[in-house]
């Protein structure tokens, strides 16, 4: 039994450095690949994303259309290259926004407690319980539609979840002896949060971030439908799957390829987080 756990409890020298295993390196490579595609992708694409290049629809892969054609006969390869920018960029920005604000507020609420805690919790609960479609429509009506609005909206939708999660973790840590000691030393809230709480919840918070990223990638397509953000002929990957779902019975690459793109990105982001060097991921060890 014991050796099973010794890995975690008795760090071998390797674990002191920023060492990463093979899976982690592969995942990191994949994430970097998509990040690069997001930046230079549109320059590589063989056709403009809106041009109809095939009179057939849901066309198969061929030497001219590498990933077949979509429901209108547009080149899927070009559309995925173009969509990378939106999916990677918007989701990353939104997930960072959501997790940063959620975690900071969550830890503050847990450490300060009292009325601030109650007030923040109630406010964010109220926010969370408004259906996102309603929320999206109101946002569009109030401030119009643009990419920054979309990012903020996604961030706001996912902040309460991140907040609740971080707060639940922080509340548990907050009762630890070392926190009590630090408080007794007269440390300020900022110090408690940054030095005592944060290092001890990094692992679960990062795992949470990974999942939230996946949800945001998928929710993006739903909000695009409301006319938020990404405008035709451009589209994010989720929307590509959605608009080509009719090709599923034929196993059309038009629906499978964007799915694969989403899966490769989201899985590698999560694998990367899971395999981050122990020193970053879990400073408590």
């Amino acid at each position: 039994m014991a050796p099973m756990f010794s890995k975690g409890f008795l760090p071998t020298p390797r674990h002191f450095g920023y060492h990463m295993n093979t899976v982690g390196i592969c995942a990191a490579a994949m994430v970097c690949f998509w990040a690069v595609v997001a930046v230079i992708g549109p320059m590589l694409s063989p056709y403009p994303p809106g041009e109809i290049v095939d009179f057939d629809y849901y066309g198969p892969m061929s030497s001219t259309l590498w990933m077949g054609s979509d429901y209108l006969g547009r080149d899927i390869f070009s559309r995925i290259l173009m969509g990378a920018r939106y999916t990677v960029g918007i989701s990353l920005a939104a997930v960072c926004l959501a997790c940063f604000s959620g975690v900071v507020l969550g830890m503050t609420a847990a450490v300060v407690g009292g009325w601030l805690d109650t007030g923040l919790s109630r406010l964010l609960d109220a926010l969370n319980s408004i259906p996102s479609k309603l929320f999206g429509l109101v946002m569009v009506a109030a401030i119009g539609s643009s990419i920054p609005v979309l990012i903020v909206l996604l961030g706001v939708i996912y902040t309460p979840g991140a907040f609740r999660f971080a707060r639940a973790l922080a509340v548990n840590i907050n009762t630890m002896d070392y926190v009590t000691v630090a408080r007794a030393r007269g440390e300020r809230t900022g110090y408690l949060i940054a030095q005592e709480i944060l290092p001890n919840i990094t692992g679960p918070v990062l795992a949470d971030l990974g999942l939230r990223f996946v949800f945001i990638v998928l929710l993006l397509s739903g909000l695009s439908f409301l006319g938020l953000g990404v405008q035709p002929p451009n589209a994010d990957w989720g929307s590509l799957v959605r608009e080509n779902i009719g090709g599923l019975p034929f196993g059309a690459p038009a629906v499978l390829m964007p799915c694969l793109a989403i899966a490769s990105l989201t899985i590698s982001v999560n694998l990367l987080i899971d395999n981050l060097p122990v020193k970053i991921r879990d400073r408590s060890e």
């Binding site: 998928l218 959605r242 599923l248 799915c259 989403i262 899966a263 694998l271």
Partner: peptide, 19 residues
């Protein structure tokens, strides 16, 4: 399991349902 669940949720819901 860890990889499996990420794979499963990264497939859009409407795609799972349609499939």
């Amino acid at each position: 399991i860890t990889m499996g669940i990420v794979a499963v949720i990264s497939v859009p819901e409407f795609m799972i349902a349609t499939l």
